[in-house]
């Protein structure tokens, strides 16, 4: 199997690795970069559970190869404070608190991807109306919550 050397900044830490060219970014992040908070639910880009931010753009890690992230900076759930523009290490971020308060998670499997994507969404669109929130959520599947509480949690944190 052909391998390539890559350099990636993952949640602020610079990593170098030699990876098989076919290795998925999701597997690289989970297995070699220690990002257990990245969840894979569908593996084909539909559910959004694996969403990470790659050089400032939300992407689905299950649809990219690790080698495509060479030279890039990746942010996962561990970077949520930065994505929300708040101090790291200060407990739960406002979005996380809101999810907890509104019971917007049950099994929590969809949650990290949803939080990363939503933090990025709110950074670009701080006061979305309900229609914009629904449009944003369209790319995320949650089988437990019934969505109403997720929508409420996001509405509660918008500016």
């Amino acid at each position: 199997m052909q391998c390539l050397d890559i350099r990636v900044i993952v949640d602020g830490k610079a990593l170098t690795a030699t990876v098989p060219v076919r290795l998925l970014l999701s597997d690289f992040l989970r297995e070699q970069a220690g990002c257990g908070g990245l969840h894979v639910a569908c593996g084909h880009g539909v559910c959004g559970a694996c969403t990470v931010v790659l050089d400032d753009v939300p992407v689905r890690a299950c649809l990219l190869l690790a080698v495509q992230a060479d030279g890039a900076a990746v942010q996962t759930i561990a970077s949520l404070p930065q994505l929300e523009g708040c101090e790291p290490e200060r407990g739960l971020t406002p979005l996380q608190q809101s999810f907890r308060r509104y019971h917007a998670l049950q099994c929590g499997y969809c949650t990290p991807g949803l939080l990363v994507a939503t933090a990025k969404f709110l950074a670009g669109c701080p006061s979305p109306d309900r229609a914009r929130i629904l449009e944003h959520l369209n790319g995320h599947l949650c089988r437990c919550s019934g969505y109403a509480n997720i929508i409420a949690a996001i509405e509660a944190v918008r500016a």
Binding site: G36, G37, V40, Q96, F99, R100, R101, C107, G108, Y109
Partner: peptide, 17 residues
């Protein structure tokens, strides 16, 4: 509020994988 939420919200929940 749920005690389960902390780890799940921060990506520290331990699932099988």
């Amino acid at each position: 509020r749920r005690r389960e939420d902390g780890p799940l919200l921060t990506g520290k929940g331990v699932f099988l994988a």
